[in-house]
Nucleic acid binder design. Structure first.
Lengths: 254, 254
DNA sequence: TTGATAATTTGACTTATGTCAAATTATTTC
DNA sequence: GAAATAATTTGACATAAGTCAAATTATCAA
């Protein structure tokens, strides 16, 4: 596993793309670089374990990362799926910063790469804490990040506790479909090209991970895909999902 | 319902007890008071609804408050139970502060009092946002608050998705029992008295609310209490829970 | 290309938890 | 303190979702 993990020289340009750091000066970014490091990970590589000693927070630069918990029986639940330029593992910095300073903090969750060629930035917590004292503007960014995370978690809990798996899956597909349209529009704008319009998108994660994210297991997920297909809301072919009735899908998922 | 809601004159002493404001000066507290108001609520009174226009964040002064979501079928899930001096409904302030400024923000969750004589403080978001710009030290407090909330939510999700109801209830009882011991020790220290030692505590919320908090319904909760009783881990008599085998209860709940 | 491994699907079955209705117990109010 | 209301318990039953095993399909590596 460790053989995939290599070091690379980072630049301040890499940091600038990270929302959290977007307002910082070149000088400040250089400072942050001085106590950050870079890690590459292949699919399935563990970034950190639940209860492992805390080093600092992470940021996805490339690929994607799952944050998950495991039950006593080995069942996995994916709480978050992180995409490039989003940070994770920051909670201990603020939740228990005295523990961080005394090297007593631990990671609150497991993190693993779910794509090959995933790259993450790791920011050492202790120097970052002193950095923050002189750069309070970054606090607002963190407040915004954590608030958004709380909102996502709230929705997640709502889904898991109040909706059955069919509704949860319908909602996931609806949202992922909308996301895929947005991403496409961005590419068209950036590259000034026109992509052919389609009602399909590719699942960005494996069905195993999707099941673990929706709070179920792969067999149930498979059957639920079929139910939505039988009702002519979607068409499933491997990882390719075609939305047949967006209006109905949206209505059902709410 | 509204007839129970009365206004009261607040002082800076009321604010000082709130963790979030504990480091502020008298002058700063007076400022906050100028754009805060006070509300009394009886058991069951709604403080705000999901999707209702956002006014500001709240803080429990007396009693307790549940934060909950409701499913299409009317089932309730309690995400948080807030006790005195903890704040809630702050997420929009940071998550969508532009919406707050433009009066487009909404509350992300429902809030209702679960005790008679509950009192809350309501801090108007817009003036608070400008206050914060000059008092960045309060940002750290908020970061700590939100981080702790994230941790609680993480644990909540873990429980709901990876443990069955018996384990969730065992965990709740174990933690509540430990809390009750702490509270008792605090009273003994404060009042310099010795309370008689006991292995019992009173459920601080109704069984209906407990069921909604554990992600189940009252009938299942009732049966689950019985199971734990049959295994001689606890004894249940109304709201009085006696812990018979703490070690086993702890072991089981992890 | 082919065998090997991993991912997904399908089927038969079990089980935990939810639903509905009725009985019991606790709490409030007059 | 009795009646009324609310909270909780119990029972019979329904069902969504999990378990285990086997089959199928997709993906990867030589």
């Amino acid at each position: 596993m460790e053989k995939n993990i290599l070091q690379k020289k980072l630049t301040t340009d890499d940091l600038r793309k990270i929302h959290l750091f977007s307002d910082l000066t070149e000088e400040e970014l250089t400072k942050i670089l001085s106590f950050s490091r870079h890690k590459k990970a292949g699919k399935g590589d563990i970034l950190f374990f639940d209860t492992e000693p805390y080093f600092g927070f992470h940021c996805v630069l490339e690929g994607s990362v799952k944050l998950y918990k495991i039950s006593g029986e080995g069942r996995e639940h994916i709480v978050h799926i992180m995409c490039p330029y989003s940070t994770f593992g920051e909670v201990p910095v603020f939740e228990s910063f005295e523990d961080v300073i005394n090297d007593k903090a631990v990671y609150p969750i497991n993190a693993a790469s779910i794509e090959d060629d995933t790259e993450v930035l790791i920011v050492s917590a202790k120097p970052f804490l002193s950095f923050m004292k002189e750069n309070t503007s970054i606090c607002f960014k963190f407040l915004s990040t954590l608030s958004k995370r709380l909102k996502v978690l709230n929705n997640h809990i709502e889904g898991i506790t109040l909706h059955d798996i069919k509704r949860r899956l319908a909602k996931y597909i609806f949202e992922e479909f909308e996301n895929s349209k947005k991403r496409k529009a961005e590419i068209e704008r950036a590259k000034k090209i026109k992509l052919k319009s389609t009602d399909s998108f590719e699942l960005p994660i494996s069905k195993y991970d999707l099941a673990a994210h929706l709070g179920t297991i792969i067999e149930t997920l498979s059957r639920t895909f079929k139910k939505l297909q039988d009702e002519n809301l979607i068409d499933v072919s491997g990882k390719k999902i075609t939305v047949l009735d967006l209006k109905e899908l949206k209505k059902y998922s709410q």
